[in-house]
């Protein structure tokens, strides 16, 4: 109801402005030309509002024109019957303009709606392709490994252990993916209530490292988390997920002998945590695109493009911020802040 009132308000304002303009130019132009000014006002109203406000504006225009300018002025009386024709034509033209303008507007809205649905269609299909690729890869590996195991000569063969490790690792990858999918859906449905309690960030980083123990497999993790850091209010389960995704990201994209670096400090009443690697860095342009859902740096490194999107959603739900940077000297760096 309220936006409609606003439209009628605009119609009244337009009539007032047109009247003021007519007072300004009336000494210089023919009386009937003033009707054109009111038509401009009606067009503007029709561009913004719907059919109702346009009709209202047309009537208002005719009444103002009559009252303020048609002799005898400042009455609704009309001296010459010719002006009645002017009124009728003025009203008719205003109606036609309104009708056309409103139609153009609805059509462009319709077009925009189609565009939005095309956009969400595109999102859906990219979700499907990312997810089905991500789901199929580990499933193929698992099924293939099991098949090979069943044909292999026995526990003594060299391939036996490799295949079993394959199965476990791929199943763990599936588990992480499913978890990310579930969390994305939960976060987007808006039904997640954060269970925020003051936690030491070290505890949460520690849980994430523990969870990733196998995929870290001997990778050096260099951490700098001072004992005296203040606690920050956080949902430990969701913040653990943030660090799992950031660290997992570093492990997958930055192979090689360089350590993964995790640090935290207090800065200006906020807790700032950094996860950095010495991998190839981020190719996204601008770099913050990495937080977009389904965005993937490379196909080969895996990931459905959900991990960093979740990080952003969780950190922002905590009232914090997260940024991506390319490091001087190479590598990616993720910096998040939490109020504490």
């Amino acid at each position: 109801m309220r936006p409609l009132f606003k439209e009628y308000g605009i119609a009244m304002a337009a009539a007032a402005i047109c009247t003021a303009a007519c007072f300004g130019i009336s000494p210089f132009v023919a009386l009937t030309d003033l009707a054109m000014v009111y038509l401009v006002g009606t067009t503007v109203v029709a561009l913004r509002g719907g059919w109702g406000p346009s009709v209202f504006s047309s009537i208002l225009g005719v009444l103002c024109f009559n009252f303020f300018f048609v002799p005898p002025r400042f009455t609704f009386d009309v001296e010459h019957p010719q002006y009645v024709v002017t009124f009728l034509v003025m009203f008719a033209v205003a109606m036609v303009i309104s009708r056309l303008t409103v139609r153009v507007r609805t059509q462009s809205e319709e077009a925009r709606r189609l565009e939005v649905s095309a956009e969400s269609e595109r999102l859906r299909s990219s979700l499907l392709s990312a997810v089905s690729h991500e789901l199929r890869t580990p499933l193929t590996a698992i099924i293939g490994s099991v098949g090979s195991l069943l044909r292999a000569p026995g526990p003594g063969s060299t391939h036996w252990r490799e295949l079993l490790e394959n199965i476990r690792e791929e199943a763990e990858r599936l588990t992480r993916l499913v978890h990310n999918l579930i969390e994305t859906t939960r976060l987007e449905s808006g039904r997640v209530r954060l269970k925020k309690e003051p936690y030491p960030i070290e505890d949460v980083v520690g849980m994430a490292l523990e969870r990733l123990d196998k995929s870290l497999a001997g990778r050096e993790v260099r951490n700098d988390l001072p004992e005296s850091l203040p606690l920050a209010p956080m949902d430990p389960v969701l913040m653990e997920l943030v660090f799992v995704n950031l660290i997992d990201n570093a492990v997958r994209h930055a192979s090689g002998p360089f350590p993964i670096e995790i640090s935290a400090r207090e800065a200006g009443g906020k807790l700032e945590a950094v996860v950095a690697d010495r991998g190839p860095g981020l190719r996204a342009e601008p770099v913050d695109r990495v937080f977009e859902k389904f965005y993937r740096e490379t196909r080969s490194a895996g990931g459905a493009g959900l991990g960093l999107a979740i990080c952003k959603a969780v950190v922002e739900a905590h009232g914090g911020t997260i940024r991506a940077e390319n490091r001087p000297g190479g590598g990616a760096l993720f910096r998040l802040t939490l109020p504490c």
Partner: peptide, 20 residues
């Protein structure tokens, strides 16, 4: 909160790498 701080401090006494 007090329990979390206590665990945190204790870890810094009995763990070589408290974050892990």
């Amino acid at each position: 909160e007090a329990l979390r701080i206590l665990v945190h401090q204790t870890r810094h006494r009995i763990e070589r790498e408290p974050v892990r």
